[in-house]
Structures are given as C-alpha cells and as structure tokens.
Design a protein around this nucleic acid. Structure first.
Lengths: 219, 219
DNA sequence: TTGTTCATAGAACTTATGTTCAATAGTATA
DNA sequence: TATACTATTGAACATAAGTTCTATGAACAA
C-alpha cells in the first residue's frame, strides 16, 4: 500500500489517537479530537479521520463509538510478537504437557521466540530448570533454564528433553544401530540406551518432550 | 486490596472484557456485554460491572462510552513491565556506551529484566555476543550472548565485561594485593593483571563496562 | 413467616457520539 | 475566470450508550 505524505496536522491527529489510546485504553471520540485540536465541529474531526482512513492510516467502524483504530501500529504489534511469556515447568507431569492452558501460579519468563528460531508464539516453547551437571560439557549448568520447543521427535545429535523414570532429563539424542541413545555431556555419567522400534519414541517408559533450542541463565 | 472471590459469571464477564479489549482495541459497551451473556437489560450488565468495580476489579469512567477498564490487567501491564528489548552490542565503541538512544539498526533481543535481577528496564541492561572460549569453564561459550548490567564497578568474583585493548572481553574480576586481575575460565588463557590505583578501574587502557548478570544462548 | 440480598427484567430518560446536509473561504489548477 | 480540491463551520439528526427507577422471583438467614 502506497501511503501518501501526511501533513503536519494529519500526523498530529494520528499521533494523538495513538497516544490517547495507549493512555486511556480506548480510542478518542470525535468530540475529544475536536477539543484537542480546537476544531469547532465534529465534522471537522470526522473529515480528517475519513481522509486518513482513505489513505490507509486508520480503520473506522461505522456507527460505533470510539471505533477508530490506527493501522500498522508497529511499536505495539512488533514488540508483542517478539515477546512471549514462556512457562517454566518445574516438575514433569505424567501425561503430556498442557502448554495451551498456562497456570497462573507457575513461573514464567519473557523470551524472544524469534531468537530461538520459533515463529509461532503460542504454546510451542517452554522452559525447564536443569538439575545436575550431566550436560556440563555443553555449557548447560545446574540451575540453568533450557528453552524447549515441544515436539515428539528429534534428529540425531539434537539436545532433547525426555521424560525418563518420572523425571525430565536433558540429554543429547542419538539414533542408530537399532537403538536410541540419550547421551550425557559429562564423562561421569552413563548414556541411557533404549531399543528403537521405529515409530514412536516410547520404548521403556520414555517420552520425548521436545528439543532444546536455547538456554537462559541468571547469575 | 483484598479481593472477594468471584462467581463464575463474574469471572466470565471480566474475561470477556479483557478479551474484547485485546481484540478490538477498545472495551465493550453495556449492550455488547448484554448480548454476549444474554442479558436482556442493560441494567443487568451495569449491575455486574458496578459490582466488579466495588470489588476493585474494574475502573469505570461515568458517562463515558466504553469507559470500563480492567484493573490489574496482568496480561498486559505486567507483561509489558517484564519485557525489555535489550540492545545487543556488536563492536565496542571507544567511549562509554550510549544505551539511552538505541539504534534501530542494531540487533535487539527481548528479555525479562526481572529474571536478571534488574528492576528498572530502561537502559541498564545490554547484551554482548561472546567471542572465543576463554570463559568456557563457566559455561560461557563462543557465540553466547551475555546479559550485562552496565556499571563502572564490580565486586571481587563478579564476571564482568571490560574494554581491553579496544575489545570487549568477558572475564572474572578479582581484586586484591594492590592489583586487579581479569581471570579467564580456561586454563589455556592467561589472566590480565592491572595495577589497582584505588578509585577508577582505568589503569592501563582498561574500562569496566558492566557486570554479567545472565546468559542467553540459541542452539 | 418476614426480611434481605442477589440477579435480572422493562421502560423511560439523558447524554454521548457518529452522521448528514448545507455553506464558506482559501488555494491551487486548468 | 472558472473549476476543483482542501479545510473548516454550523446545525440538525439518528442512534449508541450510560443512567435511573421500579418491579419480580429465587435463595437464604433471622
């Protein structure tokens, strides 16, 4: 959409609508705009709004009070899409995660889904607090939060989160020779070996919860 | 403020107002609420709203269309305050950082300032992409982003970012015996020794840029 | 029972708000 | 000059929307 150049007054009006909206939580009325810009007729304000609408800067819902909306409000929309309150799962439940219904009690952490290669922002990502030092050679320390993309499969070499003996464990995922290996990154620990039956990764009491796509640490 | 327990319907109405607001950009009218909940009188909706207002869940501006506002709208207000677009500094400029005026070209990353122990969200934090493996024993790898609280001083033992020979370097800060030591966490590297003249940490071409308070990694 | 509170309904009313029509200058353009 | 577009005004209008008052039935406690 090619947007025409706006006059000073048009820019001011647009700015006023945005500011009013962000301050009050709702858009201004025609008369509120009139008052602000010393326009003595509501039709004056209306004139400008419909002009801005035609140029694509505003959406106007007819016959609705406060029915104006700024189009392409970058500062809000982009910032919102680059921000996601990721749930941090403490204990691992027996069943699959219910990421869709975040518990308000649970710990949450704002993350940038884009940075972790996730475009969707809904329930794809979750965090998990790492216990122990079994992945220390990968720079994953006790207390770190790993950012996990929830998915039921993984590629050879991925670092994954799996449920193993009622615990969530972070390991490197290896597959080959008819078996799956969950490999720690610490010589003091032994790898976990599981028979690979092809399809589902659920051999002996194990379930793949997701792939680790990032890490966040507070010092 | 002690909030009374809400009935199912009250919760639903509150949720509806929030949802409507986030979708439309403005709050619903009494009649829209009536329609949603099959209330045949505007007074029915009004009754609930003023009740919720008394309990502190809503703000109502009298005689204003769409003049309702959810109080303590956690999803928006807290989300905003718990989110900060932190600049990621690529190269280190000669002078002090100008964190106050973020360049739109520069890389940015949404972080949770609370998680990193920072209450202010303005220009206190910045990110720095780590080069090399001199801090690998601390789990800080090449390519990681360290979250830095900008400050000109540090305590013994802090991991800091310092400008050293026109480069930003991440090291452990040690002070004692009349000198400052910038200590790598990798036996393959040698510590940097600087004479300590008390006040400013600017001995030989060195400047403390901040203290590392966190780490973010994308895999 | 009686009285109270809760939840809702109906109607009338006032005000807020968007819409429409007519008119007036100023300015640019043909 | 004539024409068109821009910016604004004024007034009247229709409807959207908040307010007020009265009334009713259900649940509940005294």
């Amino acid at each position: 959409m090619i947007m025409a150049i706006l006059s000073k007054k048009q820019q001011d009006i647009l700015a006023f609508i945005e500011k009013y909206h962000s301050q009050c939580g709702y858009p201004p009325t025609l008369r509120e705009i009139c008052k602000k810009f010393s326009i003595s007729s509501t039709n004056g304000a209306r004139y400008h709004l419909h002009r801005l609408k035609q140029m694509g800067y505003l959406e106007i819902e007819p016959n609705k009070s406060r029915g104006v909306k700024c189009v392409g409000n970058v500062s809000q929309q982009q910032e919102k899409s680059r921000s996601f309150r990721m749930p941090i799962l403490g204990s691992v439940p027996a069943g699959p995660f219910d990421l869709a219904s975040p518990d308000s009690n649970e710990e949450q952490l704002t993350v940038d889904p884009e940075f972790f290669g996730s475009r969707k922002q809904e329930p794809e990502l979750f965090g998990l607090r790492v216990k122990g030092d079994s992945m220390i050679d990968e720079g994953i320390h006790d207390g770190d939060i790993v950012v996990v993309r929830a998915q039921p499969n993984a590629n050879d070499g991925d670092i994954v989160v799996a449920r193993w003996e009622e615990e969530a464990t972070v390991k490197r995922f290896r597959r080959g020779g008819g078996q799956i290996i969950l490999e720690p990154a610490n010589p003091a620990y032994n790898p976990i070996l599981i028979d690979d039956h092809g399809g589902k990764e659920e051999g002996q009491d194990i379930a793949l919860l997701g792939v680790v796509v990032g890490l966040i640490r507070s010092m």
